[in-house]
Write a protein that binds this DNA or RNA. Sequence first.
RNA 1: GUCACCUUCGUCUAGCGGUUAGGACACCGGGUUUUCAUCCCGGCAACAGGGGUUCGACUCCCCUAGGUGAUGCCA
Length: 503
Amino acid sequence: MAIRVRYPPSPTGLQHIGGLRTALFNYLFARSRGGSFILRIEDTDRERFDPRALNDIYETFEWIGFKWDEGPDVGGDFGPYVQSERSELYREHARVLLDSGLAYEAFDSAESLRAEREAAEDGGIRKGYDRKFRDMSETEKERYREQGIAPVIRFKVPLEGATEFEDLLLGRVKRKNRDVIPDPVLLKSDGMPTYHLANVVDDHLMEISHILRGQEWVPTASLHVLLYRAFGWDPPLFCHLPMVMGNDGQKLSKRHGATSVREFRKQGYLPEALVNYLARLGWSYDDKREFFTLQELCELFDPAKLTKSPAVFDYRKLDWFNGAYIRERSSSEVRELIRPFLVEAGLISDPSTAEEDRILDDAVPLVHERLKRLSDVSHLLRFVFAPVDSWDAGMLVPKKMSAADVPALLKRARELLEGFEQRPDEEIENRFREAAEADGVKLGSLLMPLRVAVTGSTASPPLFASLKLLGAEETFQRIDRCLEFVEQLSAVDIRREDTETKE
RNA sequence: GUCACCUUCGUCUAGCGGUUAGGACACCGGGUUUUCAUCCCGGCAACAGGGGUUCGACUCCCCUAGGUGAUGCCA
């Protein structure tokens, strides 16, 4: 049988990182087995539908680099691939179950059901629907119809017996029918299907062979199997993927950090890093390998290597992957990747000037291996594109020296810098080295005040290259202004915080 | 409450009856280095608990505990 899998996002919000992972596993499963990957839009919730979310689905997957074989935008033999365009289909199928007595109409009001549910929740208990209309006679139901109440169609879940299904990960899963959700709604009063109906009808009609979805669907999988049986169909094979949690064991949410793919993108994560990290969340290849390109994953993915237990999303490991992938990009790629982040930070203009481009070209090699996220560039290169006119006195003072030493140190550095633009970095460095030795100070003590004076920070890209980025004029101006600043407070004895001292 | 699923270092994981329980991130220490970062070397750190089965259990079974999920006219 042909392998056919689908990713069925609901356009109610931005694509969640967990959804991307589900999509990824489906995609990899299809690609690794020569199957088809299908995109289906599940927009049956008209209240929560958001057109921006729909747009976000396409943008996200284009960015990540997934291509589906069938979907709303590319077509296919099993369309339409948008559920709201298939409502007639669901109504027909609901009617079939109604006619065969496997489903029934119910006239409860949505509000009263919600009120009951909330009341039960307060008591710490949730029982589910009370099946009020399950065995009600038609004549009695007629009274409700006369009131003009639009009914929902509910599935008559068998009260006896058990239902089992095959799960690639979980094995054989069995559940008593009485433990299945009691008589869930199939068709809402607005004529739209619920997930349960639409998903079963579509997966069957679209000849989906495997359903890879999150483990939150395990409890309802039995219901779905019951539905397949009710229609006289064979259910597909299931594979319930472990969920993604935050570091506190709770479902991943905004509290933990970024959750939408869009946010990750905005923070400067590369699609290949995201894909690699996500693929390793709940899946492994062997006991060694960490790095995989999407292409490699398409060949190597094997659902047998999936883990059953939920995984905690580790933002730090993602950062590590991202830094590694940034380092793999070429200089010109990185230059273009960081450009929008510099614009966003207001550090360069858009479009950039020739001068900015020139500086950018020279700056990329200095920050390349220092980037974890592309957005880090705004901090790393701020001193190049924005003025530095205030200083933290504590930072200026080298270890084991006092503020009174700083002016001399800075002046010395300034004179050693004479003509630095024309000299190679190594030569400048040697001058400093020799001077430091002659003065009996550490090289670092000579360089740190200079670094802070010019970049405003104790951490910077390689100093001499950074100064060249700025140019001699700006460099000397900053030193001079810093000198003024530090001489004003030389009276006060300020020492650099010596964090190294352990007492 | 009920039902279901899950349980190896802090985190992601390897392991599929016999291993000094391996790797990666993070962390700590050291080296390279003008700071930061990269890179290199080293270290810390785990089989939830209790019963079985077995010559032998991280591996198989049961129970307990804990975690998570479902219990919606949301998906």
